[in-house]
């Protein structure tokens, strides 16, 4: 009985699927944008790979790029100033850096909303009060918070680097419907080719690096991408270090467990 019912239920689904095959056009739709879209170029960073660690000098440069270029529109709301000590700053430097930012607060006398200089225990302030304000100021585009951006995009840091350095004039054969409209900019690394953000890094020396590194556009893009890996995964060096310790421990355990297993079965294995 079960098999009979099952047989007919199975037939029901199979006919529904056969019918679905008949009514679904087989034509493979070509998404015109896909032909122009490009995958991020590989980016070599110190944090890549299972031995990856951070290059603190690079992170400091990246922070400067963020501070002087990106911070105008993009927040970094998950990061606390105090955490910047991981970049090699001492307490005083972190304090001074935090104080350069105004964070929301209340006036202690009137209770009115106010701002005050940041403290190490504060998070980076967002440049806009909320999404509506951000969209209003940016032609309806919403500059995303950058704290997690390298984890929130396929390609991670390589994507950020490629995007920042990927602005160019639209190719001549680009169909009209894919051409950037007003307020949009052609960038083949962006999902739909046209991004609202104008090229943020445009000229060499836009940021002056304290360590004397030549601030080419590519260098600035690289450094800020490296910095954003840190903001997304500050635990990365520790994670890798613990990882090797744990794997080493487990390797020894596996050998011991295997020997123990063989010895338990020594009198049983007939094959």
């Amino acid at each position: 009985m079960v098999r009979l019912i099952g047989f007919f239920v199975g037939l029901g689904f199979i006919f529904a699927l056969l019918y679905a095959i008949l009514v679904t056009p087989l034509a493979i739709e070509h998404n015109a944008a896909e032909a122009f879209h490009q995958e991020p170029r590989p980016l070599a960073l110190a944090s890549n790979g299972p031995f990856g660690r951070f290059d603190t000098a690079q992170l400091q440069r990246g922070l400067k790029v963020y501070k002087e270029v990106c911070a105008a529109c993009h927040g970094l709301s998950q990061v606390r100033f105090g955490q910047l000590e991981a970049l090699g700053y001492d307490e005083g430097q972190v304090k001074a850096l935090a104080a350069q930012f105004q964070v929301p607060s209340i006036n202690p006398d009137t209770g009115e909303p106010a701002t005050r200089p940041g403290l190490p225990s504060d998070h980076f302030p967002s440049p806009y009060a909320n999404e509506v304000a951000a969209r209003a100021a940016n032609g309806n585009a919403y500059p995303p918070d950058l704290s997690l951006i390298t984890k929130a995009r396929h390609g991670g840091a390589a994507y950020v680097h490629s995007l920042l350095t990927g602005y160019r004039n639209p190719p001549a054969n680009l169909p009209a419907e894919l051409r950037p409209g007003t307020g949009l900019h052609y960038n083949p690394y962006f999902a739909n080719l046209n991004i609202a953000m104008p090229a943020p890094l445009t000229s060499e020396g836009q940021v002056t690096f304290d360590d004397g590194t030549r601030a080419t556009v590519d260098q600035m893009a690289k450094d800020v991408s490296a910095f954003l890996v840190w903001t997304a995964e500050p635990e990365l060096p520790r994670r890798h270090a613990y990882g090797w310790a744990v794997l080493g421990f487990l390797f020894v355990l596996s050998v011991l467990a295997y020997l123990s297993y063989r010895s338990v079965w020594a009198d049983k294995k007939g094959h």
């Binding site: 487990l250 355990l253 596996s254 467990a257 295997y258 123990s260 297993y261 338990v264 079965w265």
Partner: peptide, 10 residues
């Protein structure tokens, strides 16, 4: 238990 212990390690 010995065999599962080894499997668990892997």
């Amino acid at each position: 238990t010995a065999k599962d212990g080894f499997g668990l390690c892997i």
